[in-house]
């Protein structure tokens, strides 16, 4: 086997896995803070990317477009909290989940209604070309864009981990995900915290949307990449920020390696479903995921 080729597949797989991690992070945030799977995360990615690209197309400079989109995502988070979530405090989690399904369709419609449903090219100014230095030394083709995306994802994970585990707000958020009412009883303002965490999830959606948007073009299918994040979530654990990134690396490299080295024997095209097989196996062995919080049962 060609070692250089193997590593090239491995590394580019890992880097593309990081892109899944970015999407998965948004899910993890909301899961950690409310114990609910946010079905609307994909729609938020679409909305963020579409808003961003349309602002750019209006001729706004990139920093202004970016800040305006951030503002839109924060306002959206506050509205979601006020109009939807605040009425569902202390309801069974399945009710909250259903609300996010509704929200998903609403946001998809809103995004395409306000802007449009065309495919928009997005150029962030990051080139999708092989990194020259790496190519010279090792002969591997590693995309600059992938590396930039990985650095961004890595720093997001670092910052968010610190927020969740070292700060007062992070501790309060983890308390809320364990027990909504108990959190209220000790004086944690649920409404404010939920607005904060949805705003952060909105920002993460914007980062994911922008990077995926440059890859695929900003279009409706962006809301479907959420499905790519599912196996990452299951593998890493729904409430682990670190899990999201590690599982992203595993899934990304796994699917590429499987496609390249296993694919030819089974007729190819296994990249599309391989992650799900991996996720299912994990569910058998460790239902909380590799890094998820242990499921505590008292008997």
């Amino acid at each position: 086997m060609d070692v250089v080729f193997f590593f090239e597949v491995l590394i580019s797989g890992m880097l593309s896995g990081v892109m899944y991690s970015l999407v998965a992070l948004g899910f993890v945030l909301i899961y950690k803070a409310s114990g609910v799977f946010n079905f609307a995360q994909g729609a938020m990615v679409l909305l963020a990317a579409l808003t961003f690209v349309r602002f750019l197309e209006m001729g706004l400079p990139i920093w202004l477009a970016l800040s305006l989109t951030l503002l839109v995502m924060v306002v959206l988070a506050v509205l979601i909290e006020k109009l939807v979530l605040s009425h569902l405090v202390n309801q069974p989690l399945i009710i909250l989940f259903m609300a996010t399904i509704g929200l998903n369709f609403f946001l998809e419609g809103l995004a395409q209604g306000v802007w449009d449903s065309q495919v928009h090219g997005l150029d962030l100014g990051i080139e999708d070309v092989p990194l020259a230095a790496v190519e010279e030394v090792t002969g591997m083709f590693i995309s600059v864009f992938d590396v930039v995306a990985a650095v961004i994802a890595g720093s997001l994970v670092l910052v968010l981990s610190i927020v969740f585990h070292k700060t007062k707000v992070g501790r309060a958020l983890r308390a809320v995900s364990d027990d909504h009412q108990a959190a209220m009883s000790v004086g944690i303002p649920l409404d404010r915290l939920w607005a904060i965490v949805w705003a952060i999830a909105g920002v993460v959606a914007l980062v994911a949307g922008a990077l995926w948007g440059q890859r695929l073009g900003v279009q409706f299918s962006l809301s479907i990449i959420a499905l790519k994040a599912l196996p990452v979530l299951i593998l890493g654990g729904f409430n682990s920020i670190l899990g999201a990134i590690v599982a992203g690396l595993l899934i990304g490299s796994g699917e590429k390696l499987a496609e390249v080295f296993l694919g030819p024997y089974v007729g190819g095209g296994i990249e599309a479903f391989f992650p799900y097989v991996l996720a299912m196996l994990i569910l058998f062995i460790r239902p909380e995921g590799l890094f998820g919080d242990k499921i505590i049962e008292r008997v």
Binding site: K168, R171, A172, R174, A175, S177, D178, D179, Q181, A182, A183, S185, V186, G187, I188, D293, K294, I296
Partner: peptide, 19 residues
């Protein structure tokens, strides 16, 4: 009781100091 199960005892206590 309603303790936060996934938080340590000390973290549980600290959540009480939120306000």
């Amino acid at each position: 009781r309603h303790c936060f199960e996934h938080l340590s005892i000390e973290e549980n206590l600290l959540t009480g100091a939120y306000t």
